[in-house]
Design a protein around this nucleic acid. Structure first.
Length: 553
RNA sequence: UGCCUGAUAGUAUAAUGGUAGUACGACGGUUUUUGGUACCGUUUGUCUAGGUUCGAAUCCUGGUCGGGCAACCA
């Protein structure tokens, strides 16, 4: 659209590569999740980046599961990840698995052993850690480092054959025990794990480490731009070292700053904890920052893509305000959501000059943002209406444009009413308010000449249907729960879910379409929950409307 | 007290030696049968100290502050 829009640093790199003829202009990226949890909004940023870059420059993107640690990975996660990427609107060129390359990776390891660049080490994890030294002191070699090629070959074959228990031996790269970059101090390539793998079953009992799988997988697929997050910067030297020694396709790694969103947590470990310890219903709880949670909450793929586009890409740590995410979904839904009325906290209004038992049909358009309103629906009107409790005040302040004794307001798509009186119960709670309507003020046919500033929503009492409505607030009460003292769960917002068991809704909403957003006029955007049934409708509030009204005493 | 990174309004992001701009937020106004939307306006910024230059957010040097790195996790 705007040819002026500046490039982010990754686009600059790609354009530079294309301009210099690198890879003959070919662009192939990959999205490489580990199937050990559900995807979250942070992954969405990576997905939009990888797929978006390829799309923009005529390339392709592989979906590759980084499944090298069988003790944490499950097929359930694979399935959810595929569903989420698809839902976001992206198509991958190939569905691949690091585990597809286990044979090839094994051969790569043998190659390095033969070159004298890898050795089998019998040390314990603790010994190896100690021998690596510290950032300021070099590591010290042990006796295993000088094993012969033949011995290493035999030992590694035995490791693969299952002759040793977990932890007995590892295969290490022989790089540089004095390297200032700790990742180069003879990093582990393979460890023994007698664990069932979700795809390769029990075929393997040795599994490659990330550093000996990721770059090699990239090279096998001939990935041109391997994009990952900042914490992998120290791995880059090792990534390049393996590629160089193995003389395989030189994929290049580039790093960007991961997304941080305030008032939530973004690590899979913490999200898993919230699920397992039942602080939330499941991975797709509408309060979760997961893709599936956002979907159930009512976020659209377009709104998430727009969000990822707006936050930009750079290399500095960042903390994005959730208000931007909310802006994106409001912007989308405002254009697409059909308007409906729903009263969440009801109080009864009786129109004293409207005939009891009479019903009149009003009309209201579906979407005022669209030319023609996208059609509309009929609204039954009667002398008894449910209105929102907060739309009446016993002692209304100045500039209160709703109801109070003596005040007038319009009933959306119906008449202007004037409030005359109200009654309270023994506890002092207002129970009913009495109004008179202005017959000449009927919507679309108003000859009353009366102008009111406020318009309120309503539901005819005898025609009302009911639904359970769930209102969500931020999951945590502090901006960055992970940065606070103590357990992050201490900072959960106890009021993140408010259930309204019985809200009054338009009858029409009984036919609400799953996955579609509705605007409950003046209350926000809502969508059907996955547990909603014909007998018991359940709506989730996606987001409130922006509230420009500042209450003052 | 090692190595690697980074630092531009409240939050993000642009300006690639030549007018510090955009978005979100906040605030104010106009329109409105949603206190929504739309439209208009206001506000706030180059971490610091030097240097190079006609000219520095940008280049150089020192400092300060943030993040990462010593998992048989990815």
């Amino acid at each position: 659209m705007s040819e002026e829009k500046s490039l982010n640093f990754l686009e600059e790199i790609v354009e530079e590569d294309i301009a210099t003829g690198k890879n003959r202009g070919r662009v192939l990226t990959r999205f490489p999740p580990e199937p050990n949890g559900y995807l979250h909004i942070g992954h969405a940023k990576s997905i939009c980046l990888n797929f978006g870059l390829a799309l923009k420059y005529g390339g392709k993107t592989n979906l590759r599961f980084d499944d090298t640690n069988p003790s944490k990975e499950e097929t359930e996660y694979v399935d959810s990840i595929k569903a989420d990427v698809k839902w976001l609107g992206f198509d991958w060129a190939n569905e691949l698995y690091a585990s597809d390359y286990f044979d090839q990776l094994y051969e790569f390891a043998v190659t390095l052993i033969k070159k004298g660049l890898a050795y089998v080490d019998d040390s314990t994890a603790e010994e190896i850690a100690a021998q690596k030294g510290t950032p300021t002191e070099p590591g010290t070699p042990n006796q295993y480092r000088s094993r012969s090629v033949e011995e290493n070959l035999g030992l590694f074959a035995d490791m693969k054959a299952g002759k040793y228990p977990d932890g007995a031996k590892v295969l290490r790269a022989k790089v540089d025990l004095a390297a200032p970059n700790m990742h180069l101090r003879d990093p582990l390539m393979y460890r023994i794990k007698h664990t069932h793998h979700h795809r390769t079953g029990d075929k393997w009992c040795i599994y490659p480490m990330y550093d000996f799988a990721h770059g090699q997988s990239d090279a096998i697929e001939e990935i041109t731009h391997s994009i990952c997050t900042l914490e992998f910067i120290p791995h880059r030297d090792l990534y390049n070292w393996f590629i160089e020694q193995l003389e395989i396709f030189p994929s290049k790694q580039y790093e960007f700053a991961r997304l941080n969103l305030n008032y939530t947590v973004m690590s899979k470990r913490k999200l898993l904890q919230l699920v397992e310890e039942k602080y939330v219903e499941d991975w797709d709880d509408p309060r979760m920052p997961t893709i599936s949670g956002l979907r159930r909450r009512g976020y659209t793929p377009a709104s998430i893509r727009d969000f990822c586009d707006r936050i930009g890409v750079a290399k500095r740590e960042n903390m994005i305000d959730v208000s931007l995410l909310e802006f994106c979904i409001r912007e989308d839904l405002n254009k697409t959501a059909w308007r409906r009325m729903a009263v969440l906290d009801p109080i009864k209004m009786i129109i004293t000059n409207y005939p009891e038992g009479q019903t009149e049909t009003m009309f209201s358009e579906n979407n005022p943002e669209v030319e023609g309103g996208e059609g509309g629906r009929e609204l039954p009107f009667s002398n008894e209406l449910w209105i929102e409790r907060e739309d009446f005040m016993e002692e209304p302040p100045k500039k209160f444009f709703r109801l109070g004794v003596g005040l007038m307001a319009r009933l959306k798509s119906a008449y202007i009413v004037k409030c005359d009186s109200f009654v309270k119960d023994a506890d002092g709670n207002v129970t009913e308010i009495y109004c008179t309507h202005i017959p000449e003020s009927k919507s679309g046919n108003d000859t009353s000449g009366i102008h009111v500033k406020g318009t309120i929503h309503w539901i005819s009492v005898p025609h009302a249907k009911t639904a359970e409505v769930r209102l969500y607030d931020r999951l945590f009460q502090v901006e960055n729960p992970s940065n606070e003292d103590g357990d992050f769960k201490e900072y959960l917002n106890p009021n993140s879910l408010q259930i309204i068991p019985k809200a009054y809704i338009e009858a029409d909403l009984a036919d609400a379409i799953s996955g579609k957003g509705y605007q409950f006029i003046r209350k926000g955007y809502f969508t059907l929950d996955k547990h909603s049934t014909a007998e018991k409708l359940v709506f989730n509030r996606t987001v409130t409307l922006k509230d420009g009204w500042v209450k003052k005493g």
